[in-house]
Design a protein around this nucleic acid. Structure first.
Length: 472
DNA sequence: TGAAATGTTGGGGCG
DNA sequence: ACGCCCCAACATTTC
């Protein structure tokens, strides 16, 4: 039996249900179709992840075929060309991913080629989780409680033994696809920070499971400490799956090697990832428009120069600037700081959450449609289970609370290294003498604050009330 | 998975 | 000893 496995967001060999099924045949063809609409940082990641997958496959004599174009035509064409008996893939839950799946199934209907799809990237299929009224959950906590009660993840599947084919198929060359930047090569420093691919994902889990997870419940909020998993980009491309993480974490807790408090907190973060995909399946419109339609009437300011200052990490609020610079230099930002910077853009600068989402989409190595839309809408106050709009983060207090010693802020905003911690998150309150001693000249080598916190907060609140009034 | 404004309480200084 | 005021600490509500 000749089988084609179409790799999508499942770039791994272990615990890969569709690949496992495909390995039952005696001739395997592996395909990946290069997506056209992903951000710059994601492209860098994908390039390296494909390289890794391709290496792993070739050890079993399987060549990874790369093709460009719309999968809706590319996949059926290749299926016919190769004369396969069965096509397998793991489902993708974005509107585009769902559409691709159904269109390809339809295209091959009646062709004699069987099609089977599997779940590799969620603990539970979204359509199987409904409340008592038979409707989709809109709030995380009841959703996750419901999931926990019904969860029985299977043992992770082992790496299957694969048998390639001698059938010759044309493949694009990875090096010529332009996925990695050349001039300028802004990703130069990424190589030392990240190890895309399945081995890198396993290594990231190992490091986390021996370190940060043991302080996860409290420690995850402090961006200067290394307590988060850094697994997000690996999860985005399915180099590791939630099923594996669930199983590994439960094993640690069962063996008393991990406090329940920490393990459960980590799994609930996996739950948030699950929830954002779930929302996108049940409410696909949130990819483009507000979950809460009230916000269609919100009057944004959308001042271009403010957006640019935010992107560059030049807002004059140190914790915000630190986050935006971490993002630019590493393709990643600590979760606490993502909330602070996103709140600042939407509330202090009154820029539409879509403009922030677009920036994150282009710069994050873990860019993911579901997480990106759900999280931005959550922060902006228009999303499911959103923080109410009037919950406005105070960037000074957040900085003092979560980076009181300045470890994080000073790393990314080195021009403030000499500033005493008392003023680190509000340098404009320091005296001339203190600033001078620290070598800080506001407006020259570090910006003055773009907006006044108190005024900006009041303006945002009044815009919010106007929106509600206009809607009545 | 906030923060600010407002309200309440209780200990201690002091006449 | 007592009442009064101050204000920190905590609680509640409001945005």
């Amino acid at each position: 039996m000749k089988i084609l496995h179409w790799f999508r967001e499942d770039l791994r060999l272990a615990d890969n249900p569709a690949l496992y099924e495909a390995s039952q045949g005696n001739e395997l063809i592996a395909l990946f179709v290069i997506p056209q609409n992903i951000g710059g940082a994601s492209k860098w990641w994908l390039h390296n992840s494909l390289q890794s997958l391709s290496n792993d496959l070739s050890k079993s004599g399987v060549q990874l075929i790369l093709r460009q174009g719309d999968p809706i035509s590319v996949v059926p064409e290749l299926a016919q060309e190769a004369g396969i008996d069965l096509l397998t893939w793991n489902r993708v839950y974005s509107p585009q991913g769902v559409l691709q799946g159904s269109a390809i199934k339809e295209a091959l209907n009646g062709s004699g080629i069987k099609v089977e799809s599997f779940n590799s990237q969620l603990l539970i299929e979204p359509t199987k989780v409904l409340n008592k009224q038979g409707k989709a959950f809109r709030v995380f906590t009841p959703f996750w409680k419901h999931c926990l009660a019904m969860l029985e993840p299977p043992l992770p599947l082992t790496v299957p033994s694969l048998k390639g084919t001698s059938f010759q198929l044309e493949s694009a060359r990875l090096e010529t696809l332009g996925l990695i930047p050349s001039q300028p090569n802004w990703a130069q420093s990424f190589d030392a920070l990240w190890q895309p691919g399945e081995q890198g994902a396993i290594e990231a889990w190992r490091k986390f499971s021996e370190g940060g997870i043991n302080q996860y419940a409290q420690g995850r909020d402090f961006p200067g400490e290394c307590n988060t998993s850094l697994l997000s980009p690996h999860l985005t491309w399915g180099e590791i799956g939630p099923n594996q993480l669930w199983y590994y974490t439960q094993e640690l807790m069962a063996g008393n090697q991990l406090a329940n408090e920490n393990g459960e907190k980590f799994l609930s973060e996996i739950g948030w990832r699950e929830f954002s995909r779930y929302l996108l399946v049940h409410f696909p419109q949130i990819e483009k428009s507000s979950f809460n339609p009230l916000f269609d009437d919100f009057v944004w300011q959308n001042k271009e120069s403010n957006l640019i200052a935010w992107q560059k990490g030049q807002t004059g609020y140190p914790i915000v600037d630190a986050g935006m610079r971490e993002l630019w230099q590493t393709g990643y930002m600590h979760n606490r700081v993502r909330m602070i910077t996103a709140s600042f853009l939407t509330k202090h600068l009154l820029c539409n959450w879509r403009s922030g989402m677009a920036w994150f989409w282009d710069t994050l190595v873990d860019a993911d449609i579901a997480n990106n839309t759900a999280s931005w809408q959550w922060v902006a106050g228009c999303g499911a289970d959103a923080s109410p709009y009037f919950r406005i983060f105070n960037p000074i207090l957040q900085g003092e609370k979560f980076d009181g010693d300045g470890q994080y802020t000073k790393r990314w905003v080195p021009e403030l290294t000499m500033l005493p911690n008392k003023y680190l998150h509000k340098p404009w309150e320091a005296s001339e003498t203190i600033l001078k001693t620290a070598g800080v000249e506001l407006g020259t080598n570090y910006p003055k604050p773009l907006v006044d916190h108190k005024l900006a907060r009041e303006l945002a609140l009044s815009r919010y009330h106007e929106m509600k009034l206009n809607h009545q």
